Amino acid sequence: MRPDTTKVREIEPEDWASVIAGCLDEQGFQTVVRADGGIENPGVPAAQQEALAVAQFVCGASYPFPEKYSQPLTEAQLSRLYEFWVVESVPCLQSFGLNPPLAPTLAVFLETYESPDMWGPFTVLGTLSGPRYDEVSVACPQSPDDLRD
């Protein structure tokens, strides 16, 4: 059974890690904010995993994103994302010596978006770990700030 929750306030993606980490800390789970904007709960014993999952649910329900973030991207937004990846992300990744896959045409990108054949330059991040992953993921944003405006 899911616990009752109350929405405290909506949050923007850039605030997610700090807000959810604070909420989880309040629920008794040590939470670390990673450089890439993710969070971790190190040292949680197996016996506490279910309690952690409940706390994560409560925190997510208490601090949701505005509805615009749950809507599918429009063709115009997808075109903006493609342009950003080709013009900004690919050169940024290359500046770190990474070789992202070659971009397809915009038409192919739109046709294959969210399919197993979807192109994305950030698949090369899977080859990195630790401080190097953090360095690249912070330096090379994965989407333009205005994508959902």
Rank of each mutant, 00 (worst) to 15 (best):
Q56R: 08
F96T: 11
C92N: 13
E83P: 00
I39H: 02
E67P: 14
L106C: 06
W85A: 11
L106H: 01
L93F: 15
S70K: 13
L102Q: 15
A55H: 07
Q94P: 08
E111F: 02
K68E: 14
V86K: 07
L78A: 11
E114W: 03
W119Y: 04
L125P: 13
E111M: 04
Q71V: 11
S79Y: 03
G60Y: 00
E135I: 05
A46G: 03
V44N: 06
S89W: 10
D117V: 00
T105D: 03
G60Q: 05
T127E: 13
L52F: 04
F57R: 04
P72V: 07
S79W: 02
A103I: 01
W85N: 14
V138Y: 02
E83L: 03
E40W: 07
A103F: 03
V138H: 05
S89Y: 10
G126N: 15
S70Y: 15
S79H: 00
E50S: 07
Q49K: 08
L93Q: 14
R132L: 07
L128E: 07
G126W: 05
D117K: 01
E135Y: 01
P100L: 08
T74D: 05
R132N: 05
Q71N: 11
A55T: 07
W119D: 01
E135T: 09
V58D: 05
C140G: 14
V124W: 09
Y69N: 12
G60A: 05
G130H: 06
F65L: 15
Y82T: 10
A47C: 02
V58L: 10
P45A: 02
S95K: 15
F122I: 13
L78Y: 12
W119V: 02
A139P: 08
W85R: 14
Y133A: 12
R80A: 06
C59E: 01
P141R: 10
P121R: 08
L128R: 06
P141I: 09
E135S: 06
